[in-house]
């Protein structure tokens, strides 16, 4: 029993959305273990720090950090200085720095090592930023904006490279497979674009070679995420579904549909890619069995739409 508990402690599922709360869940029972107050704005994005100590919540003008170990319902760190919504947040794999992107058209690097943010770095684009994704090599950020442009921003040289997969479409999400072979991007027309990534040695930048384009959804595609083994890709959409694709040929593996679940905003795979969590506008987070395509757990308690989730499995 004790070991089970301690194991369970390491599994973190956090959800947030429009009801100004962030909830942590006991994954196998569906019981909400903790509610944190996020009074000032909705939660745009959630990310768990690499050491599992902190939870970062991207919100309006701020990034708030919550302590995952204490029972403190309020944030312990407040990153301020952005003028608009922060839409995306993430961590460098050692927790040295944090990146964010926002509607103020800027992607930022926040230094987490020292007290006074020694090394701020900023990257400005022409349109509000919807998503930021870090390449596994930890030195290249991929930024997607509302003009439909994907930027590859090299953090060491500050050089950037632009891609425009489709005209008059917003880039809504970008993800890079953990094995760094593929990059996926979804837009507001439901299209999914896939690139093969060729990593250069040392100082040569990563090359992006268009690989595939397919219609993943009929309406907005909101998120795309590779499984930890890079074999699956999940896309979520405003068409009230999430779809799982095989990354070898991008054939449809599974469709996760529930009546009246409304927009499916976010998703996260378990470490072995057997299960996937989704967050949707019906106020529920859900756990699905990938193979069977059935829902196995429901996480109920949010008053309004759940639009962000963060999950960290233990192995």
């Amino acid at each position: 029993m004790m070991t089970e508990n301690s194991e369970n402690d390491q599994i973190i599922l956090a959800t947030g959305g429009y009801d100004h709360t962030i909830k942590l869940w006991q994954t196998h029972t569906g019981i909400c273990s903790r509610t944190m107050q996020h009074a000032e704005s909705q939660v745009n994005g959630l990310e768990i720090s690499p050491d599992k100590d902190l939870l970062a919540a991207a919100s309006y003008q701020h990034i708030y950090m919550y302590d995952l170990h204490s029972n403190n319902p309020s944030a312990i760190v407040n990153y301020e200085g952005t003028s608009k919504n922060v839409t995306s947040v993430g961590f460098q794999e050692d927790g040295k720095w944090m990146y964010s992107g926002g509607e103020d058209c800027r992607a930022r690097i926040w230094d987490l090592r020292s007290r006074n943010n020694q090394c701020p770095k900023i990257f400005e684009v022409q349109a509000p930023i919807n998503c930021v994704s870090l390449h596994p090599n930890q030195v290249e950020l991929f930024v997607g904006d509302q003009n439909g442009i994907i930027y590859r921003w090299d953090l060491r040289t500050d050089n950037n490279e632009q891609l425009i997969p489709e005209n008059d479409a917003m880039i809504l999400d970008i993800d890079i497979s953990p094995d760094s072979q593929l990059m996926a991007s979804v837009n507001n027309k439901g299209k999914c674009y896939i690139w093969s990534l060729v990593s250069g040695s040392n100082d040569t930048p990563t090359k992006m070679i268009p690989k595939q384009k397919f219609e993943a959804h009929k309406r907005h595609a909101l998120k795309c995420k590779f499984s930890p083994d890079s074999n699956l890709l999940i896309t979520t959409s405003a068409d009230q579904s999430a779809k799982i694709w095989d990354t070898s040929d991008f054939s449809l593996v599974q469709e996760l549909i529930q009546e009246n679940q409304r927009w499916v905003w976010d998703a996260a795979f378990s470490a072995d890619a057997q299960y996937v969590f989704t967050a949707s506008s019906d106020g529920y987070a859900k756990l699905w069995n990938v193979k069977k395509g059935v829902m196995e757990r429901e996480y109920a308690g949010h008053q309004k739409a759940v639009i962000a989730l963060a999950f960290r499995d233990a192995s």
Binding site: N8, I11, T27, A271, D272, Q274, Y275, D313, A314, S315
Partner: peptide, 8 residues
């Protein structure tokens, strides 16, 4: 890859 979640 193993998943504690799956085991649980």
């Amino acid at each position: 890859r193993t998943s504690t979640l799956a085991a649980l």
